[in-house]
Write a protein that binds this DNA or RNA. Structure first.
Lengths: 193, 193
DNA sequence: GTATAAAAACTGACCAGTCGGTACATAAAA
DNA sequence: TTTTATGTACCGACTGGTCAGTTTTTATAC
């Protein structure tokens, strides 16, 4: 093989984030099943050892991916809540509805990869559980009709899940209409109180 | 001597169903990750060879499990629809709401096992897609407010998904209340037309 | 500035376990 | 005897993880 010339070694910015980005790309491009340590390493011209140096185990890598996603999602929600004035009703629920839209940009295979890993290690979803618990508590506390608010929450979850699994309804127009109607449902909830 | 074509084509002892039962037990008891061909075979005192004779591949086995579940679910829905009189509105949606309750009895690990397998083979979920498509079309056709009917559908899906993944809301009482309110939502939809 | 030591980051080869699948023998039915 | 059904043994590909060493970076001394 040709002698690998001392490559213009990329400045070691943040190996952790680079690896997480690479893992995300691999999962989205090749599917969750092919998200192996070798594949991730190859994606950024590193070796498996290098990846494992940054993440002690593959589960750790998945955990890192998920935590970053959860953190991003949570931050978006908080930003939206903060952006809405103090007079707005159901701020968390509305913010969550908006934040979910941002998930639509992510590739479904990204989630299936994590889901698959969660089968081996149920604790992997702990950050998600924690975030959802927090949001749920706030949404219910803010709502005049907590049960109805929860219906909206589980509905948007269902919509998201169906996208992940590529299950119906997949028609973009119908999905958009459902999302719109969910917002309307929240508004109606407020009007009727 | 030509093989006398005896009428009953059923296998003498339905090994297929026994294997499917065993696979279901293994998945529920040991988790999706440990649902291996050997484990299934061991469960009924058979060997991997025997299992592979009945199901050409592991994917085939999973497919068999899923098809049986889908079929059961679909049958329950049809029974409920048939049981409701012709004057009942939204019969399919109501029947689906009831049928989902029957899924609560199944172990979450059963679904995660299938979900995990679906990562490797997305086509595995084809029967589910097909069933959901059929139901969706009927539900929307029957509904005075199709979008609202779909909200109910995706909400119940979300509730089910959250149970599978052991995500909030897990509190049985809250879940029951949400389910009840979903039924109320359907009734309200009819009242307002 | 340069030399040097130490720590950090990473490589490459290898190991070990798992698991789906195959090949063939074989026992019971038909 | 042929077909159906199952046991036994094994293969081989994959993949996560280990480890000893090598390169790169950083800190420190001169």
């Amino acid at each position: 093989m040709p002698p690998a010339p001392t490559a213009p070694r990329k400045r070691t910015r943040n190996a952790r984030d680079e690896i997480l980005d690479a893992a995300q790309r691999v999962a989205a491009r090749d599917g969750g099943a092919r998200l192996t340590l070798d594949a991730v390493a190859r994606e950024i011209g590193m070796t498996k050892g290098g990846v494992l140096y940054n993440f002690p185990t593959k589960t750790g890598l998945l955990k890192g991916m998920l935590e970053r996603m959860v953190e991003t999602f949570g931050r978006i929600v908080e930003e939206r809540v903060a952006a809405s004035g103090p007079e707005v009703e159901n701020p968390t629920l509305k913010a969550a509805l908006e934040a979910y839209a941002s998930l639509e940009r992510l590739d479904p295979d990204l989630f299936t990869a994590i889901l698959a890993a969660a089968v081996n290690d149920p604790d992997l979803l702990a950050p998600v559980r924690e975030l959802k618990s927090r949001l749920q508590a706030r949404v219910m506390a803010e709502a005049a009709d907590p049960a109805l608010a929860m219906i909206v929450m589980v509905a948007i979850d269902g919509l998201h899940f169906e996208r992940m699994m590529r299950l119906p309804p997949q028609d973009a127009k119908l999905r958009a209409e459902i999302a719109t109607r969910l917002v309307a449902l929240v508004d109606a909830m407020e009007g009727a109180r």
